[in-house]
Nucleic acid binder design. Structure first.
Lengths: 298, 298
DNA sequence: CGAATGCTTGAGCTTCATCAACTTCAGTGG
DNA sequence: CCACTGAAGTTGATGAAGCTCAAGCATTCG
């Protein structure tokens, strides 16, 4: 797999074809710099599944670069209800606060065992002085988070339970594939309970269960005890009601790793899940006809 | 009013008491730098109510610093439904994309006439080279947006219609007061329709209307044709089910303008809306007893 | 193997959406 | 100043989507 990757990275023509590609790597590069630099300046810290990495109300004294594992950012209400705000995958930067000394306004819990590397604000300051572009790259990373949050807002605010669950699972499937390019099967490990899915989509675990039953009966996917199998990705895209721009975003992300090679030249080998549906729709949205908006905006 | 402000700014003791205060100004400072610098490098651009500032799918070639007016960031679904992601007030930075050349994945519409100043990516690059700290400050601004988005996620995902509407109106009330410190009455201009409120809270305009009727009947607030009157802020805080940390965030924001003086020394004069309820609860949360969480987190 | 956690299903109920008719308000031009 | 017009607000009736409670089953892990 790694020879494929390096092969892809050696071809400058691809970078010409997809100009966003090099630049897209900037935020990742930022994560690399944070990780790499702190690797000899700070200690990596192992985290155990179920433990809180930090909690709402604590002062943000350091940022964490997630090296390995899944982490959920969440918010607990007084009555015990929970809203999951984001699932963080390796490469994510956690616990960045808008201003030094501000308190965190959400908590973070490890869903699996994992590793973070810790970078205190002092060291972050030094690092930023040494290579000044890191501030802007960090801004890019956070803007990505904001984009995901906006996407989830649209999902929770304006979609049915069916669409929300399909959307979330598709998103996690795609993001995890980007994160671990080695895993290309229809099946993946998704370290969530149905309750997690409910807390992320604004539903109850019970209702998530019913939605999943329906999706299973229709042969679209199976989710059972932390294993997700996507049986019919095209149909899943349909059900999720993916917006063209969201798809485009995912595809661009996808184009910037070796998948572009994988799909073009070796489509037959290890890619049972075709991205073609998403790609086609994103580039030729809605088969040509755009329905008129519901309202006139004065 | 401005003499009050400068009086507040001259007292170093206050800065000792609230250490977050100076630092909190950093993001605002960033906005000032963007605005000030571009004021002589780029032209300010007037925007008219109802016009789109930019649309989903366009390439983000420049960022905008909102100088005056209200702007709504929103997302339109294929079937015409709309989700409002954020209400932007003066000082906000709009259209920042994670990577150069990326497309916007939401749209922005002016709710009132206003002014933005435009800063192309090239000029942003120059500016960032001249004063490197601006990248980190921009990151802070965007992290604030992300925080608001997370708050809205919790609201839409886990609160009743009543709570959502109360929460949104309270948030807008507080933010607009921070933005225009001169306005201290119970009444304010809120350039929204009930449909806007619905689109921001994931409800229908019709249902928002019913919620507003109830709140009016209970003497909590009135919202009618773009005028909001908060009659009973304490009760509104109750209904909104504000989390202590959210309140704390708002208070800290509030402490960094002259309100701290206003409330401490001149409580009786021009402050019909008391922040005491919020402050008390934030500092002594839930009268001392924290209800146990619903679940054990394995 | 047993306990704990997570999943599954049903019945009844609440909240909010939908549809439709009607009223109020703000801005426009006579 | 008034009448007109279109946008926004108001209200009722009806139904569907999703929640709650409750009981039982499956899976994992120690």
């Amino acid at each position: 797999m790694s020879n494929l990757m390096s092969a892809a990275r050696k071809i400058p023509k691809d970078r010409q074809t997809y100009p966003a590609r090099m630049e897209r790597l900037d935020p990742d590069h930022a994560a690399d710099v944070l990780r790499g630099t702190s690797r000899y300046k700070s200690a990596d810290r192992a985290i155990k599944a179920g433990c809180d990495l930090f909690r709402l109300g604590e002062r943000g004294e350091a940022i964490y670069s997630l090296v390995d594992g899944w982490v959920a950012l969440y918010n607990l209400l007084e009555d015990g209800r929970r809203q999951i705000l984001q699932f963080a995958l390796p490469g994510a930067v956690l616990a960045f606060v808008p201003t030094r000394g501000a308190v965190m306004n959400y908590s973070a819990q490890a869903l699996t065992d994992g590793v973070v590397c810790v970078l205190s604000h002092e060291k972050l300051g030094c690092l930023a002085r040494e290579n000044p572009e890191i501030g802007m790259q960090l801004a890019g990373l956070i803007a990505q988070d904001r984009g995901l949050a906006y996407e989830h807002l649209s999902s929770i605010g304006r979609h049915s339970a069916r669409e929300r669950v399909a959307h979330l699972l598709l998103e996690l499937f795609m993001r995890s594939r980007m994160c671990w390019p080695g895993h290309r099967g229809e099946e993946m490990h998704l370290p969530l309970t149905q309750e997690h899915i409910g807390d992320a989509t604004g539903l109850t675990g019970v209702h998530v269960n019913r939605v999943l039953r329906d999706l299973r009966k229709e042969g679209i996917l199976e989710f059972h005890y932390r294993r997700l199998r996507v049986l019919n990705p095209d149909k899943l895209v349909d059900v999720a009601g993916i917006e063209p721009h969201v798809a485009l975003q995912w595809i661009n992300d996808d184009l910037s790793d070796e998948t572009v090679i994988d799909l073009r030249k070796r489509r037959d080998v290890t890619t049972p899940v075709h991205l073609d549906t998403i790609r086609r729709r994103a580039l030729h949205p809605t088969s040509g006809s755009v329905p008129p908006p519901r309202r006139m905006y004065s």
